[in-house]
Design a protein around this nucleic acid. Structure first.
Length: 345
DNA sequence: AACTCGGGGTT
DNA sequence: AACCCAGAGTT
């Protein structure tokens, strides 16, 4: 039995059940792969179920509004993925008559499909031998072959893709998924379970007892802390929310106005009804927000606040709790809303 | 090549 | 607290 035989036979007996493993429909595989980018399987599953129920086909997704797609995506993170998925559906309708191209170069032109996702769709949906190299696969390969390339660097990718192709045999979709499953269940980042690994006989790092020295990866800088006051402006039971700018962090999502300390010092003395809520902390990959929410009650337009209440309704407005529920509001602002609820507001 | 872009699970 | 996750796009 060679490497692929052992790997795939282990996979057939140990693979987890996932909704997208019951189909080879390219649209279904595409949606799952986009959601799974930098996101763990158990986190994705409920989002995937809801998404496929609402948008069962490329046509259905292409017809939808971006707002509705973002609303289903809220809480999943990396919201550009949702925008690209939506754009991609319209692109596939217009450029390919609603059918997925079976060609690698054509797939790569679809927004949001990069080297990994193209390989995943080609192999899983179409059975084409193509490398699908994600973080799991790089870790497995680096241990198998003592690969010293930094897995965080783009220039390392070709070496990993070559190794995959040298091992690939049988059904490419099964093989690629088996490699990822091995990385997720056995060849884990810390404390890998080498004694039960079906391919430990092929693993050079296991042979030398250096498994935990792989993969090689440069460290990340710590998130930078930013502090803001959050203006939670209440007018007769509704709350002021704004659509964030189209670029940058949490682009296009809805939230409360954030102001720095210096601006707060100008506004704070002029406010009558205010109430400081419990601090909210939220960590992004490279930033850490420490938020101090301030509940402010106003009757009419409050000129002392640095807010323009006369913007178009699609850019900002007073929202009832029910309306807030339907808007795409990222987790950090949901945390603020939670403090509001806890405070009995 | 480096930076940006979320949120949550694990250890 | 550190690390990682079925990565891609921009600069």
């Amino acid at each position: 039995m060679d490497f692929a035989d052992r790997l795939c036979s282990w996979f057939s007996e140990n693979m987890r059940d996932m909704p997208w493993r019951h189909t080879r429909d390219p649209y279904s595989i595409w949606v799952s792969e986009i959601m799974l980018q930098q996101t763990q399987v158990d986190t994705v599953i409920p989002y995937y179920e809801r998404f496929m129920k609402r948008f069962p086909s490329v046509e259905a997704l292409a017809r939808a509004s971006l707002e509705e797609v973002l609303a289903l995506w809220q809480g999943l993170g990396y919201y550009k993925r949702a925008e690209n998925l939506h754009r991609g559906a319209r692109y596939i309708m217009e450029q390919h008559g609603g059918h997925f191209p079976v060609d690698p170069a054509a797939l790569r032109k679809i927004p949001g499909i990069g080297a990994y996702t193209a390989g995943a769709v080609l192999s899983i949906a179409f059975g084409i031998p193509a490398p699908a190299v994600d973080g799991n696969v790089m870790r497995v390969l680096s241990r198998l072959f003592l690969m010293e390339q930094d897995v965080g660097q783009a220039k390392s990718r070709p070496a990993f893709e070559e190794k995959v192709m040298s091992l690939l045999k049988g059904d490419p979709g099964v093989f690629n998924q088996a490699m990822m499953e091995l990385g997720a269940l056995v060849c884990t980042p810390r404390k890998p379970d080498c004694p039960v690994c079906p391919v430990n006989g092929f693993c050079q790092a296991y042979k030398r007892n250096t498994v935990e020295q792989y993969p090689v990866k440069a460290g990340r800088p710590k998130p930078v802390t930013e502090r803001y006051r959050v203006l939670v402006i209440c007018r007769s039971g509704s709350y002021w929310m704004e659509k964030r700018p189209g670029e940058g962090l949490l682009a296009g999502l809805w939230g409360f106005p954030l102001i720095g300390e210096e601006q707060w010092r100008l506004v704070e003395p002029m406010l009558e009804k205010k109430r400081i809520l419990k601090r909210v902390c939220h960590v992004f990959t490279h930033r850490r927000w420490e938020l101090e929410p301030v509940l402010i009650e106003v009757s009419e337009s409050c000129g002392t606040l640095p807010i323009d209440f006369s913007v178009p309704a699609d850019l900002g407005g007073f929202q009832t709790p029910e309306q807030m529920q339907r808007l795409p509001v990222p987790t950090v602002f949901r945390k603020v809303i939670r403090q509001l609820d806890d405070a009995g507001a």
